[in-house]
Design a protein around this nucleic acid. Sequence first.
RNA 1: GGCGAGGUAGCUCAGUCGGUUAGAGCAGUGGAAUCAUAAUCCACGUGUCGGGGGUUCGAAUCCCUCCCUCGCUACCA
Length: 678
Amino acid sequence: MQREKILVTSALPYANGPIHLGHLSGAYLPADIFVRYHRSKGSDILYVCGSDEHGVPITISADKEGVSPKEIIDRYHEANKKAFEKFDMSFDVYSRTSRPIHHETAQTFFKSYLEQKLLIEKKSFQFYDDKAQMFLPDRYVEGTCPKCGFEEARSDECENCGSLYDPSELIKPRSKISGEEPLLKETSHWYFPLGKFQDRLEKYVNESNEKYKWKDNVIQYCRGWFRDGLKDRAVTRDLDWGVKVPINGADGKVLYVWFEAVLGYISATKEFFKAKGNEDGWKDFWQDTSTRYIAFIGKDNTVFHTIIFPAMLMAWNDGNKEKYLLPENVPANEFLNFEGKKFSKSRGWGIDVSDFLELFPADSLRYTLASNLPENKDTDFHWKEFQAKNNSELADILGNFVNRTFVFARKHFGNKVPALGELQKIDSEMIDMIKEYPVKIGSLIENYKIKDAVLEMMNLARAANKYFNDTEPWVTIKSNKDKCGTTINVCVQIISTLAEVFGPVIPDASGKMFRMLNTNSAGWVNCGTIRLFEGHELGTPEILFSKVDDEIISEQINKLGVVEQVSYNEPMISYEEFSKIDLRTAVVLEAEKIKKSKKLLKLKVKTAGGERQIIAGIAEHYSPDELLNKSIVIVANLKPAKLMGLESQGMILAVENKDGELKILQTDDKIVPGAKVR
RNA sequence: GGCGAGGUAGCUCAGUCGGUUAGAGCAGUGGAAUCAUAAUCCACGUGUCGGGGGUUCGAAUCCCUCCCUCGCUACCA
């Protein structure tokens, strides 16, 4: 039989923060299990990943910390790479998009599109901040709306009245970065005509679905995009952090990160083969029609992998002799939440991968996550459940079965495999099971039903315990040693099968099991056979999984929601600057909900200078009645703004707690309204 | 408000292109066993399948409507 050739990618994690458990559940662990299974099966499989290191958020983080973007990406690339290693991810290559080979690859694609005259160049005027020497993204420009007079309108769109206009019409524009008035400067960008590919993309998605049964959530998502109609997308930006646009005179322009990041898979593959001295080896995976390409991602990445990336590859294939493969399947997972809520670093909700693995072995985490993957819908990670899975499944069912078998073999059979004697019905049924389970589990993995596969793995261990119980070797050792030997022989074969089928999920424990058996993996297809014969010397038994105590779990639960101490590095202001802010007490006279608004309340307050109206975004935290007669603190000299067409003359002060709940600042009610806060 | 996803056993989740008494794991209760990490095995589920209405011989599954949760997004924390 010919070896299947498979290319697997996992979404490139963004090098702007540490990865957390949710990422692992979405795009990495399922892929790793799939890949390890195929390696065991003997497929010719290549697993590619790396850091995505360009884009605006990274430059913002860098500015905030006062360091270079390179420092940010180096930090998180290394951190995430190490975290993946600790988690026992088996990437063949973990590259990064800042490498020259990636820049070349991305530029080559761009140039090919240019040569094909596919890209559309559109000129437009955009605001340029002379002081900061940069083009300003829309949200960094404010001005007065030419239609309604709203003073905080964006450069080309007013949020207040909803009108769209040309940036040149904006009155009194100012840069949010330097505060200066930006100039309008002409710039041009290239657009990728996604719409031109819509028919072919729909065909591709539908046919792939028919042939390979795409997941329902992925299909629904694609249909949504098709229904709305695909539009041109800008592929370049005015920024200096990223892959330079490879054209003369395009200084200060880079490829938009959505355009180049997906190409990182190709660059990483090139890098892998180059390092092996096989310069063209990557083509064997990307451009050979016998290869299957599977792209594992989280649901947030769906459009990029089912629509944009395929369109880009189609576009390349239209103009070049060497043609790329499109993904055969894009098994996108939903999200993993943490104790019922979304992961949030800033709110101290969740745990980093590397912190977790300081406390517990990778296998325990891998098993727990794998048995509750968000394959159909968002799922939850609970510390209690982690403990239960580790203790009552890994340790008690699997670990204990292995242990009781080895201890028995050592005590009664000189640590050697006893002879397989005459088989009773119960023995042959068990032997049948170790043949059938790997087939069943393998087929589930191949259909991306990893969660079910993991359940079946543990079911084999359950069946093994039952077999041990029912054959009662502790009785037969006294009454019929041959029969007892048969039981232990079968149990040894079971352990060898367990080691193989559990290998993709808990590779470390699987390795230990093989060592204890004093043998190696025989490959998935052979793992259900009797392969350790009478007299085979066994290794030293050891405990596979230790239990997790209640204390350490409660400790972790108690830590939740406590925000880590971060270094305080907000910019300093002078006393003069502070004294410009006029904080005053105020009493709430009236409060009402604003129709059609979820967050806003309309307040009438009494403060210095009389009564005024304030629109406050606290409707989700306070009912109007609760606020009446409260003595609060407001910024009294804030420039008035219009929200939902209502004027807000000031802003109330509130603090946000770790759950994102708002608590307004209140004073003693004996304070007269209008008192100055200092 | 808009868009999307979801509401199934105490908990975490399967099942949903309509079809016999709605499932698994965990937890719980009772029992068996004592080789083993006090680990195993067996038995035990009266769940309004979020509420209501409709289509149908038949609905957890299809349609309508309402309620609730979550995510993204929009509007001053």
